[in-house]
Design a protein around this nucleic acid. Structure first.
Lengths: 259, 259
DNA sequence: TTGAATTTGATCGATTTTGAACGAAATGCA
DNA sequence: TGCATTTCGTTCAAAATCGATCAAATTCAA
């Protein structure tokens, strides 16, 4: 623990507030006050400033963090089983990438795992609608082409009609796609039609479509459909996929790799 | 441990200040005074100088180091140079934004300051090619449209021919543009032709073009030109712009606001 | 050494930050 | 619904910090 006899500088204190809120997601004013050893008035003023900066949102009794922790629960928890599956799926996907290829990554945590493996691959071109993937590769790595469009905050992806403008002008060898659900009857589905729109364009144009989906996605159906299952060339999933189901996919022309 | 009875020379002392701040991240004026055995007035003067150089940021009670102990970021970050001027310029620019407008922000530190003021403006639509601006607004704020294109790492912006695909489909009321240099004869210039390309498209299409440029940019000329000075409707700059120069601009049809 | 220019330290009014007080608003409970 | 409790926003005063000013000290150049 920290024992500041001297009061911390205001920005320091606000940074700690921000962090505490980020970690817990929410916090009450009273708890924050006790942790930082200042008056509630100061806490309130700090929260007001952080709200002004868009970092948090104030609610009665405390505040909630507004910073996207979409993937953090997955990433921080290395012991998390789902995270391990996703990591393995991403590694398997990585092994399929050949030199100098152009690949597509859509939004989602599995494809973000894959993006994290690409820092040394300056030979590649990565086309993506995932802001987080672009951020991950913003410092170094392959050539990054982020397709334009409207930012969908909940998924941190670029979506909407504007995406087609860029997608129409590029071609990728392999599209690595995450999805909310895949299903023999209903194909690939996701929650948001705008999201589905760009996925659909990519799935049709890509040289090869490779689905990255852990077994929990099997036979899940969401609102917006973006592709037939037949469009898929390869599914990389984990070993918890039921064997009978796994056997039915090759009959539809889909190769399956279970890692 | 330390026995400087001999008073350190001013540059040495400032270097020590810089180091102490870098090590601790932050420090209060009083502690620095005790460490260096000079008066608070001297500390304050030194901090002022270091702030001007962008090495630190002064806050009430002390200062925060702006130099990461980790590696230097690969992209150039001029956010800390003339930060006060840029903040004021951004605030003036903000006051010009009317409800429900669509605005454009290009890359650069001044426009990033402006982006930071927009967190509450959910009425706006922000079109930008700046990855950092998009990140700033990724969690809350206006509607964000990031134009597609290739990521130029050094400026963290989306550039290249693909940008025109999206830009052709949107219209903004006001374009707030940063630049590397503006010049009566050579117009607006920046270092990279790809960067210039998208700037040029925006400057031609926008309802109003508002140049955000601190006075150090005056009469600077860089490699790639992207607009005549006559395209500009308004220049927001700081008061260090030479009065004679400031007077010559209105003759070219450019309103000048010096903050 | 002398004198000008710069740097430093001290002073003091102005500004900022903080904590406490209190009425207003929101929440929980009967 | 009505009432008790908690939380919020505002106001105010105290404390800390800041910026401006000026005189003393130091440095530099002749």
């Amino acid at each position: 623990m920290i024992l500041d006899n001297i009061p911390a500088l205001a920005p320091q204190r606000r940074e700690r507030l921000r962090q505490m809120l980020r970690e817990g997601g929410v916090a009450r004013v009273e708890d924050l006050r006790k942790s930082l050893d200042v008056s509630v008035a100061t806490i309130r003023r700090d929260l007001e400033i952080l709200e002004e900066q868009g970092k948090i949102r104030r609610v009665h009794g405390g505040a909630v963090s507004m910073e996207s922790r979409l993937e953090e629960p997955v990433f921080e928890n290395k012991t998390n089983l789902a995270a391990k599956d996703k990591q393995r799926i991403a590694e398997e996907a990585y092994s399929l990438i050949e030199p100098d290829e152009a690949i597509y990554l859509n939004g989602g945590s599995t494809t973000l795992f894959l993006a994290r493996l690409l820092h040394n691959r300056t030979d590649l071109t990565v086309v993506t609608n995932s802001l987080q993937a672009a951020i991950e590769l913003a410092d170094s790595g392959p050539r990054v082409i982020l397709i334009g469009g409207e930012l969908r905050r909940i998924s941190q992806t670029m979506v909407g009609p504007l995406t087609s403008a860029v997608l129409a002008q590029v071609h990728v060898d392999k599209a690595f796609m995450g999805t909310m659900g895949f299903c023999l009857k209903n194909g690939l589905t996701t929650t948001d039609p705008n999201e589905a729109y760009s996925n659909e364009i990519v799935a049709e144009q890509a040289g090869q479509v490779i689905l990255l989906a852990d077994s929990s996605k099997a036979e899940k159906v969401c609102f917006a459909r973006f592709s037939d299952l037949d469009n898929i060339d390869l599914l990389i999933t984990d070993q918890k996929l039921s064997p009978s189901y796994a056997k039915s996919l090759p009959k539809r022309g889909i190769k399956v790799i279970a890692v």
